[in-house]
Design a protein around this nucleic acid. Structure first.
Length: 554
RNA sequence: GUCCCCGUAGUUCAACGGAUAGAACAAGGGUUUCCUAAACCCUAGAUUUCAGUUCGAUUCUGAACGGGGACACCA
């Protein structure tokens, strides 16, 4: 693969002696493909002189000065060569190897058993899956991990809810999930409003940890399985396969032991009967690792988790994809881990993503005011089936695409104000728009009249015979040349929205080209078919990285 | 109170300190004997405020205002 940007940086270095100057995609296509502000940064440099020097060489691009900017234009044969590469690379086109040899663990999804899987979880899993795929695309070995909370106070609250509501032995997987959501809300409300309930929940919590009550064990094991089965269905539905499921229950004991060990060697301290880490020594805040009752808290269990993760996989980087409310928490835990498990130092990061809020107000599993992830998918699907004549299988792909894209097109840090009617868009800047464009490309390809193809499976236009390209053809062609670099940028900056924006822009340029130009039967047919093929392929590959399937037809 | 994130058209979102602040939805108008109209074209519309740094600020700094979050035995 060719990285034009790096080439330009090197050429500029040769011309000016300045290393690693800024070169970016031009802000507007009228300014070429790339631009450099090197002469704005260094006033004594003469842009025209640099441009002349560059143009005197035989390179893949030419330089043109506008004001103080030096703009770079990729040459036509380079652009067309790139187009041919797309067709040769097929589904592998776009992949790179800049992270080759790196092992990265992405930890995401982490729903808690006995609680609802709501749209926030859906944003999480969508984000985690995309980040995983993006990093795989640039060569990293990715391990997908899911840390599911199956012990802790929230479980005790749900079990308490079952005690007061009565256990219902349901068979339907969705009914079970709904039931658990209901009893959790009951238990959680009682916990806050009623001292007796609070006491009982505390007892249940201890009993879940020490497994001393066979009745509770039985209910707990059964309902835990209900949740996990239900989650499995959702993972399948959004095309995520985890390499490893971690559970809080398997980290509790080991986490507690590590914490006690750290207490001995002075990293952790005793305070008010609890074992804590003094984050305040490092400008952070203090946190409890083992409670006064001797139960490991979330932080305690995280020690067990880190130990397990590093001993099993030894990742170069471990990315926790978790909501913003835990930003401060992670700062403390990562700091504590530096001392407790020094091998983790510099290898753990937290990537927060904004909450999904309902326009009508805040979501809360405690009050039961949540929108389930599954319901959103179902409703999107229903809407699609009502509006278009397509089968259920295609509608499912479109629904998943619409929902995922609606999360991914927004920057990670942004909160999303979710509105049932508006958020899942099927037109404009949406997943279905991109999917539709792929289907449109497929349709054109299928209707191509010529049968003669070269051994590589396509008819390469003869460059000498190629008529002058129109502005709209060029604009698609030039956009296609950016794909590989966009993937790298999106991956390394943890910004799937950059890829979304790119794909939307590409599709939009293609659609403009499509409506203004005849493809089949035109004098430039072979080029236009190839352009269509390339666009379809890049959109398909890009959607794949977003975790979205592109149906052949729609 | 301390700390963190956020504030851009009516709405939902873009924009490594760089060129004329981009889209989509909603609003108004138009395009189909022609390869998929889930499309395309046109119109109107925005950087919370005040200072500062800079050749240049939506972006950086400070303050104010507004929204969200974290701050000891929840996860």
């Amino acid at each position: 693969m060719s990285n034009y940007k790096d080439q330009i940086v090197r050429v500029l270095e040769k011309a000016t002696g300045i290393k690693n100057s800024e070169v970016d995609f031009a802000s507007d296509s009228q300014f070429g493909d790339y631009s450099s502000n090197i002469c704005l940064r260094n006033k004594d440099l003469d842009p025209q002189k640099i441009a002349n020097e560059i143009n005197g060489k035989d390179l893949q691009f030419s330089a043109k000065v506008v004001g103080k900017f030096i703009n770079f234009w990729l040459k036509k044969d380079i652009l067309i060569n790139n187009l041919i590469q797309i067709d040769e690379g097929k589904e592998d086109y776009g992949k790179g190897d800049s992270l080759k040899g790196k092992k990265i663990m992405f930890e995401f999804a982490h729903p808690n058993t006995h609680k609802a899987f709501h749209i926030g979880h859906l944003r999480n899993i969508t984000t985690g899956e995309t980040l995983s795929r993006l990093h795989e695309a640039i060569g990293a070995k990715v391990i997908r991990a899911n840390y599911q909370g199956d012990v802790g106070l929230h479980i005790a609250k749900a079990i308490y809810g079952i005690e007061i509501e009565g256990f219902e032995d349901l068979k339907d997987i969705k009914k079970r999930a709904e039931y658990l959501g209901k009893v959790y809300a009951k238990g959680a409300t009682a916990y806050e409003e009623d001292e007796e309930a609070k006491k009982r929940v505390g007892e249940i919590n201890l009993k879940i940890y020490d497994k001393s009550d066979s009745d509770i064990n039985k209910i707990y094991e059964e309902t835990r399985k209900w949740s996990l089965d239900y989650f499995d269905e959702i993972y399948k539905r959004v095309y995520t396969k985890f390499n490893r499921f971690y559970f809080e229950s398997e980290c509790a004991e080991s986490g507690k032991l590590i914490a006690l060990e750290s207490l001995k060697n002075g990293i952790l301290e005793k305070s008010d009967g609890a074992v804590i880490f003094k984050g305040s020594k490092y400008g952070l805040h203090d946190r409890v690792f083992i409670s006064g009752k001797g139960v490991p808290t979330y932080e305690g269990k995280d020690l067990g988790l880190a130990k397990l993760q590093f001993s099993e996989y030894d990742p170069d980087l471990l990315v926790h994809t978790v909501g913003p409310e835990q930003t401060e928490y992670f700062k403390v835990i990562i700091k504590a881990l530096e001392f407790i498990l020094p091998e983790t130092k510099g290898r753990e990061i937290h990537i927060p993503y904004g909450w999904v809020k309902l326009k009508e107000g805040k979501m809360s599993s405690r009050t039961g005011n949540v929108i389930l992830g599954e319901d959103i998918l179902d409703q999107a699907k229903e809407k699609i089936l009502e509006s278009y004549k397509i089968n259920s299988e295609i509608a499912e792909k479109i629904a998943v695409g619409a929902v995922k894209y609606s999360f991914l097109k927004t920057g990670l840090a942004q909160e999303i104000a979710f509105d049932l009617k508006e958020s899942i868009s099927l037109e404009g800047n949406s997943g279905p728009y991109l999917q539709y464009t792929v289907a449109r490309c497929n349709s054109v390809i299928q209707k191509t009249t010529y049968k003669v193809r070269n051994p590589k499976g396509l008819r390469v236009p003869n460059l000498q015979d190629l008529p002058e390209l129109t502005g709209k053809e060029l604009s698609v062609l030039r956009k296609l040349s950016q794909f590989q670099e966009i993937i790298t940028i999106a991956a390394k900056s943890y910004s799937p929205n950059i890829l979304c924006e790119y794909l939307y822009s590409l599709a939009s340029k293609y659609n403009t080209f499509y409506t203004k130009h005849k493809i089949i039967g035109s004098e430039n047919e072979s080029f236009r078919v190839l352009l269509t093929q390339g666009t379809g392929q890049v959109l398909k590959n890009g959607l794949k990285l977003l975790g979205i399937e592109a149906p052949e037809r729609m």
